[in-house]
Amino acid sequence: MKIVRVEEIEEAVMKLSINVNYFIRDELKEAYKQALEREVSETGKEILNQMIQNVELAASEELPICQDTGVAVIYVEIGQDVKIEGGNLYDAINKGVSRGYKEGYLRKSVVKDPLFNRVNTGDNTPAMIHVEVVPGDVFRLTFIAKGTGAENMSRLAMLTPAAGVKGVKDFVLKTVAEAGPNPCPPVVVGVGIGGTFDMVGWLAKKALMRKFGSRHPDPNYAKLELELLEEINKLGIGPQGLGGRITALDVRIETAPCHIGALPVAVNLDCHAHRVGVWEK
């Protein structure tokens, strides 16, 4: 049995909060550079250049890439042979978020009540925490700092089975097209297909947490990911929505079995900063 102490979890979450907000991942920076080579719009190229300068400045001076340092969405995979010692898992995660957002000079963007009492909690907690029990003794934390510009433009639809592949594609394209400049394109598109109403949104978020450029294990979906990426990049939205060929950097799909009468689809957009980090023990 593997032991994971809550102090280690708190420390890991604290560091992830800061690191994902200051330092862009190499594969994403590479994607910006490739986008710059493929973009034809002069304004689009200018924006992509600013994005590259911005992430370089953020890393060198240890500043947040974007002022919306997001709500912390944390996916915890706990092997069934893992024991957590020293306290409560959820408290440890929230303490890590609170420390990271304070010590890292990150913006606190969470209000305690959505409707009647929109008062800032002051430390960016609570995090949105999803826990799944998995086989073995792995303990893995995936952290995504989710800004609301892209989150607000995300959509969910309960299609019918007759809508099929075309229905799913049209819904994804429509979501990205209507989002236009708002989610800070070039975006990363997470698509959930299947499951139930509650599950499909989570699948889309999980797709965003997957490795950049990774393909679905089923070749049908892997092909669909690439087709969607190509078609999205024909929408003409371009960097910051000012027109151009680079509207998305990656499309990833997560799937689940579903009811005989259902075809749920969710599209979770992420901005070009796409701040994801992983800690594993």
Partner: peptide
């Protein structure tokens, strides 16, 4: 960058029109 001027112009409409390479079977609503 000026996105909307006092004459009713809209930079996003213009940009997308110039670079769209796909025909969509649905209307795009803002």
């Amino acid at each position: 960058i000026v996105a909307n001027d006092i004459y009713g112009g809209d930079i996003f409409e213009e940009g997308v029109k110039k670079y769209r390479e796909i025909t969509l079977p649905f209307k795009i609503e803002r």
